[in-house]
Simulated scan of single mutants.
Amino acid sequence: MPGQPVQQSADNPQEPLLPALREILTHPARLDELISDVGVPQGCLVGNTTAELVPQDAEATEVVTRSYRRFTEIVTDALRRAQAAGEVTANSSPEAQAQLLLYIVQGLSLVSRAGLDQSAALAAIDTAVDELRA
């Protein structure tokens, strides 16, 4: 989710990026496995804040904007390195790829609040990750 950094290991900057991206993208689809309380997943804090408070609350809007910008910056940098290493396609810019991933993770987070077909969500994530593969 936007607060989670995507980066290759400091110990091994050549570590593949796509498995890490897939792990982050699957979190909203797997909330029922990851939450400690029994019940319907409630989505992520940033996604919920966006849906419920933005744009009426200026402070919430600033926090959300900063979170989305930071997610996109971190993912863009990681994708740029992965493109240079030949792991990720260079058919589109790392910035556009990072924006797409932000929209996917936030969309899944929002949909998870109403329940979702986990296998369909994971198949969609796999498709997105496969499209990034060089």
Score class of each variant (00 low, 15 high):
Ile35Phe: 11
Val46Leu: 07
Ile104Val: 14
Arg81Asp: 00
Ile104Gln: 05
Asp117Lys: 04
Ala51Leu: 15
Ile24Thr: 04
Glu59Cys: 11
Asp77Glu: 13
Ser112Pro: 07
Thr76Pro: 09
Gly107Ile: 04
Arg66Val: 08
Ser36Val: 15
Gln83Leu: 07
Arg66Pro: 04
Glu87Asp: 06
Val46Asn: 02
Arg30Ala: 05
Gly39Arg: 02
His27Asn: 11
His27Cys: 03
Leu45His: 09
Glu73Gln: 08
Arg113Met: 15
Glu73Asp: 14
Ala90Arg: 09
Glu95Asn: 03
Glu62Met: 15
Ala78Met: 07
Leu108Pro: 00
Glu33Phe: 13
Asp37Ser: 14
Gly115His: 06
Glu87Val: 09
Arg81Pro: 00
Glu95Ala: 03
Phe71Asn: 02
Gln99His: 13
Pro94Leu: 05
Glu95His: 00
Pro41Asn: 12
Ala85Tyr: 14
Val105Ala: 05
Ser67Trp: 00
Ala58Gly: 10
Gln83Ala: 03
Val46Trp: 03
Val88Ile: 11
Arg30Gly: 01
Tyr68Phe: 12
Arg113Leu: 12
Pro28Ile: 00
Pro94Asn: 04
Asn91Gln: 14
Leu108Asp: 00
Ala82Thr: 09
Thr76Glu: 15
Ala85Met: 10
Val38Gln: 10
Ser109Trp: 06
Ala29Glu: 02
Val54Ser: 02
Glu52Ser: 13
Ala84Ser: 10
His27Gln: 13
Val105Gly: 02
Thr65Pro: 02
Glu73Cys: 06
Gly115Ala: 11
Ala98Phe: 02
Leu45Pro: 05
Ser67Tyr: 01
Gly115Ile: 09
Ala114Pro: 03
Arg80Glu: 00
Glu23Cys: 12
Ala96Tyr: 01
Thr72Arg: 09
Leu45Asp: 06
Asn48Trp: 14
Ala82Arg: 12
Thr50Tyr: 15
Pro55Trp: 13
Leu108Gln: 05
Val105Ile: 11
Glu52Leu: 13
Gly86Glu: 09
Val105Tyr: 00
Pro94Asp: 00
His27Thr: 08
His27Tyr: 13
Thr61Ser: 10
Ile104Phe: 08
Thr50Trp: 15
Pro94Met: 07
Ala84Gly: 12
Glu87Tyr: 07
Leu102Asp: 13
Cys44Pro: 08
Leu21Pro: 02
Pro55Tyr: 13
Thr49Gln: 01
Val75Phe: 05
Ser112Met: 06
Gly107Ser: 05
Leu53Arg: 14
Asn91Pro: 06
Ala29Pro: 01
Ala90Glu: 07
His27Ser: 03
Cys44Asp: 07
Gly47His: 05
Val54Trp: 04
Cys44Ala: 07
Thr26Pro: 09
Leu101Pro: 01
Gly47Glu: 09
Thr49Glu: 00
Ala51Cys: 13
Ile104Met: 11
Thr76Lys: 10
Ala84Tyr: 10
Gly115Arg: 06
Pro94Lys: 08
Leu108Trp: 02
Ala82Asn: 08
Leu116Glu: 06
Leu45Asn: 11
Glu59Val: 14
Thr50Gln: 15
Arg69Pro: 03
Leu110His: 05
Gly39Trp: 01
Arg81Ala: 03
Leu31Arg: 04
Ile104Ala: 12
Phe71Ser: 01
Thr65Val: 03
Thr72Phe: 10
Gly107Phe: 05
Gln83Asn: 04
Ala96Pro: 03
